[in-house]
């Protein structure tokens, strides 16, 4: 077995420096790498390019990095619910590239799977396609989109083992599996790090080959962004 386990978040984030491109899993605040984000704040690295579907909220998730002005550029599909983000974007302090959500996922998957680029119909005829190659297939127009290139991918999984195998829970899965193996180094944090051999190989969502470092996360807040409930009759 090839061991991927590291002792803590500090060891896991070794090599992260200013100006790097980072992928961060999560949809809204669900499935975000909370420990890695907290450590990025501690490290104070800046000039970061962050690839993440959303940009957190003002005081949680990537919003914490925005507050400290550590992010130079965000590549996301949806960035509502964050006033500081909006302020930095409108003032020009923050460079923002908005791309279709499916394109974001596929640009991760392409990087992981060894595809340099792919054609998608999303965004054809809109400003998203400006300056990009387009091509017709079977009478429909498509836009050429390129695989991402990133230094680190920060992943949050439910369970994992020392071999780096991962299991996700619910919709906290989202972009996390697509980002595993899509950067030079993939770092997974898990709610529960179990001994190798404990996870059923049939039930593994991401094989450890796509993960370079894994650590037991701590103090998960798992904040709910929109708490919607119904009353018992």
């Amino acid at each position: 077995m090839i061991r991927k386990e590291v002792a803590n978040v500090q060891k896991a984030l070794q090599g992260v420096t200013n100006g790097q491109t980072l992928m961060l899993g999560g949809f809204g605040l669900s499935g975000i790498p909370e420990n890695a984000i907290a450590e990025l704040v501690q490290l104070g690295v800046s000039g970061l390019t962050c690839i993440s579907n959303n940009a957190g909220v003002d005081d949680f998730g990537l919003g914490l990095l925005l507050q400290k002005k550590q992010i130079k550029k965000m590549i996301s599909s949806y960035v509502g619910e964050n006033d500081e983000f909006e302020r930095q974007m409108l003032s020009g302090e923050l460079d923002v590239e908005l791309i279709p959500q499916g394109t974001l996922a596929e640009r991760c998957r392409a990087a992981k799977a060894g595809f340099p680029a792919f054609y998608t119909p999303a965004g054809y005829g809109t400003e998203v396609a400006e300056g990009k190659e387009t091509r017709e297939f079977n009478g429909k127009m498509y836009v050429l989109e390129h695989a991402f290139k990133a230094d680190f991918a920060f992943i949050k999984a439910w369970k994992g083992d020392a071999a780096g195998n991962l299991v996700f829970k619910g919709t906290a899965r989202n972009f996390n599996p697509n980002m595993c193996g899509a950067a030079e180094i993939t770092i997974a944090e898990v709610e529960e790090l179990v001994p190798a051999g404990t996870l059923d190989p049939n039930q593994i969502h991401i094989p450890g080959i796509f993960v370079q470092r894994i650590f037991q996360g701590v103090n998960y807040e798992k904040r709910i962004e929109q708490r919607t409930v119904r009353q018992k009759q």
């Binding site: 949809f27 809204g28 962004e225 929109q226 409930v229």
Partner: peptide, 18 residues
């Protein structure tokens, strides 16, 4: 939507609602 007290941060829709 879940009953009150049964919300799960790991189970949301695209509007980020539980």
């Amino acid at each position: 939507f879940p009953f009150e007290g049964e919300e799960d941060a790991d189970i949301i829709n695209a509007g980020k609602q539980t």
